[in-house]
Write a protein that binds this DNA or RNA. Structure first.
Length: 760
DNA sequence: TAGGCTCTG
């Protein structure tokens, strides 16, 4: 390597030469596309699975809509014809666009400009690989109740297919809904499609996300988050506003998408039965499931053996290299690999996937340290960390152009796997690990642990190298290790607390949640544990039916214990404070902790801390933030995450609106009598209490587990006889967060039934 | 003494 002394310590990592090469999927010519029956496209299959193609088991029901792949030599030229999709390159975290434009009010020259833009885009739309399959897709959806569409990133499926449906008249009796797991995607897709249609957001094309609904009566295509669709189910149980539901990114298997699978399937059946019975004004519901992987057989089997259509994407080839030997320290291996790439490979930035902030900051320091000895002819290697807890200004740094002759190395968590698309990445370094949230249903405890990723996750990471040009993916594990990985990430529904989902199901009319039609069934103990929690909160009665209180709780866009606190705040007359603290607790953390300024950050935090714990400390931060009207410099000086604070204000606003609608006065305040606020929180969190033991540890009142106050808590190191907490997560220990001091006697007052029963 | 990532009319 670059330094003889260090070279002795740092051996070069050998990667296998014969790693799989992912063929180009760039389409030679849209017209060349033809409908070939029965098999997924070989190139696509190989690209996605890394294996030789196998015929799908249900051969009769699959259709191949993919086009001829060409070598990458031609593809660079060809690609220039294809318009770059704006929504892919836009920076995330832009604040929601609140313009609910109305073309009808636009001056004529503006609408003409929109039409002109749409005409230009129309040419490009026709060149997309998917265009040649247009008629087939329309026909299949018209002829079938459910259709599965598999297509890689860049196939244009999410922007084009809803437009095809609209053009074919499928929106005549209802809106075409397209659900997305992420807000940014919903916004950007809607903006792009509005342009292509020749309109502004809020007319034929709109989006609906939390805090921002741009749809109107005339909206034909509506991009929305899956959470919003779940909310709509509460008021429109048959989704009568919709004619087609497109469930996009189905392979991600978020909890909400999984719940939607079962709900839309049931709604489709109910609507069909009503039509059969001659009910008027009911139209059939079409379901389209879109996924990026070839795990389509599972979706098909679930949706009555629905037909599967395969569409090729537009990805450049990515050569995958595995290490010859297993690596004992993947951070060290990543360091070595980054310098190897920098010295041996052509221009292009590097993206390294790590598991968390600590690893990222360690590697950042190491890269800076070793860069000192790098011969000048190689140019600088610039580390750029990115993870969710950063403030937005820091996050934006990764989008700054790389200085000439230098190379950026992006150090990222999974945020770069799906949420953020970083330009100019040619090299991906995959450590094969991520931090994964788990849930032990039997004891009801969440965990956050480093675990191996799945094969589909590894492929997703690999794909990040081939978005703009052919790339290389260095896997810091052997090919054998890859083969041993699970095929897919375990669906979220099997590894999280289900209380919120069950409350939503119950409130949407599902009486027996154990018999619900899950694609992947959560464990019985998981369901029971969550139902017990809802029962303890008073949301379910002895028979497991939804109570009046449960109905009210389901209406609030917060987790069940917080909803309970909100309802209780009316009784305790502290709604203003309850809403504010819930809003503050609903973001990850409002404090930032840059590792190089840890002491300064801790010092800045001290002035907000309340002796009574985190709930009141958070309230102090909000008061400070409002007194300076959210000044950015104030946030920076106090190590407060401004982006998260703005989110807090939005949540507060929404909770105020919801409270008003529920007949609760959101301005009712307890003044400075903060004891009332803590007692109020105990109404939702009485199961999360712990008592100080003679040995100075805290023992949970329910379950008897020894819990540790998280070092970021205002209560860290404090000894109070009794405490309550909002969250318990196992990492290296059982850490509790959101901790405040209480008095043990408050517990019986907060939940007489619960603690009465337990004593009996 | 330490926080993967989403998301809620």
């Amino acid at each position: 390597m670059f330094n003889a002394a260090r070279n002795a310590k740092r051996k070069i990592i050998t990667f296998g030469d014969d790693g799989e090469t992912i063929p180009s999927l760039i389409v030679e010519d849209a017209k060349a596309s033809s409908l070939t029956e029965l098999r997924p496209d070989a190139a696509l299959n190989e690209a996605v699975t890394g294996n030789a193609p196998e015929p799908p088991s249900g051969q009769e029901k699959s259709i191949n809509l993919s086009c001829t792949a060409v070598s990458n030599g031609d593809s660079n030229n060809k690609r220039q014809h294809i318009p770059k999709r704006k929504f892919e390159s836009q920076k995330p975290y832009s604040s929601s666009d609140r313009r609910s434009g109305n073309a009808a009010k636009q001056p004529e020259h503006v609408t003409e400009a929109l039409r002109q833009k749409a005409r230009e885009l129309a040419k490009h739309r026709k060149q997309l690989p998917i265009f040649s399959a247009r008629e087939t897709i329309i026909k299949e959806v018209k002829d079938n109740a459910c259709v599965i569409i598999v297509g890689e990133t860049g196939s244009g499926k999410t922007t084009q297919i809803p437009q095809y449906f609209m053009e074919a008249g499928l929106s005549a009796h209802g809106t075409i809904a397209v659900t997305q797991p992420r807000r940014v995607a919903a916004i950007n897709l809607a903006k792009r499609v509005a342009q292509e249609v020749g309109t502004t957001i809020g007319n034929q094309v709109g989006y609906s996300i939390r805090f921002d609904d741009t749809s109107s009566k005339g909206t034909k295509i509506k991009y929305m988050t899956d959470g919003i669709m779940l909310r709509e189910l509460l008021s429109d149980r048959l989704l009568l506003n919709y004619s087609v539901i497109v469930l996009d990114e189905a392979h991600e298997r978020t909890l909400r998408t999984d719940i939607l699978f079962g709900m839309v399937k049931s709604i489709q059946k109910q609507r069909a039965e009503m039509i059969e019975q001659g009910k008027k004004g009911i139209e059939p519901l079409k379901i389209v499931v879109m996924s990026a992987t070839l795990d389509a057989e599972k979706f098909s089997a679930y949706f009555y053996n629905a037909k599967i259509m395969y569409i090729s994407g537009r990805m450049y080839p990515v050569k995958v290299l595995n290490t010859i030997e297993p690596q004992s320290d993947y951070v060290d291996a990543a360091l070595v690999t980054a310098f190897q790439i920098h010295q041996e490979e052509t221009a292009g930035d590097i993206l390294i996937f790590l598991t968390g902030q600590e690893e990222i900051e360690n590697l950042e320091k190491l890269i800076e340290e070793y860069s000192v000895d790098l011969p000048t002819r190689f140019g600088k290697l610039i580390p750029c960390p990115i993870f969710a807890a950063q403030d937005s200004a820091t996050q934006q740094k990764i989008f700054e152009p790389t200085p000439a002759g230098c190379r950026k190395v992006i150090l990222a968590t999974n945020i770069a796997e799906t949420s953020i698309t970083i330009p100019n990445i040619r090299y991906v370094v995959d450590t094969g690990c991520h931090k994964s949230r788990g849930y032990n249903a039997k004891i009801g405890i969440e965990s956050l642990l480093i675990e191996p990723i799945s094969k589909s996750s590894a492929r997703q990471r690999m794909g990040r190298a081939g978005r703009e040009a052919p790339g290389l993916c260095f896997r810091l594990y052997t090919e054998d290790s890859f083969e041993q990985l699970e095929e897919d990430t375990v669906p979220e529904i099997k590894r999280c607390n289900l209380a919120s989902a069950i409350l939503a199901l119950k409130a949407s009319g599902v009486e027996d949640v154990t018999k619900f039609d899950y694609m992947d069934r959560p464990s019985k103990s998981g369901l029971l544990k969550s139902m017990e929690q809802l029962y303890a909160l008073g949301a379910l009665d002895d028979k497991g039916d939804l109570t009046e209180m449960g109905k009210k709780m389901a209406g609030f866009p917060v987790d069940p214990p917080y909803a309970k606190v909100l309802l209780q705040s009316e009784v305790m007359e502290c709604t203003k404070e309850a809403i504010e603290i819930i809003a503050l607790l609903s973001v990850d953390t409002i404090f930032t902790f840059p590792s190089n300024k840890r002491e300064e950050a801790n010092e800045a935090r001290q002035k907000f801390l309340s002796l009574d714990g985190d709930h009141l400390s958070l309230l102090n931060v909000l008061r400070g933030y409002e007194s300076v009207k959210g000044d950015r410099d104030w946030c920076r000086e106090n190590f407060i995450n401004g982006r998260h604070m703005r989110h807090v204000l939005e949540v507060r606003k929404q909770l105020i609106e919801f409270s008003e609608r529920a007949g609760i006065n959101p301005r009712t305040s307890c003044g400075h009598d903060y004891e009332i606020v803590l007692k109020c929180f105990l109404a939702g969190f009485f199961q999360n209490a712990a008592l100080l033991q003679p040995d100075s540890t805290y023992k949970a009142v329910v379950g008897g587990l020894t819990v540790n106050i998280h070092p970021s808590s205002a209560m860290f190191g404090k000894k109070r006889a009794a405490i309550m907490y909002n969250e318990l997560v196992f990492t290296t220990k059982h850490y509790i967060r959101g901790v405040s001091a209480i008095e043990a006697s408050w517990l019986a007052q907060a939940a007489p039934k619960y603690f009465g029963q337990r004593q009996a």
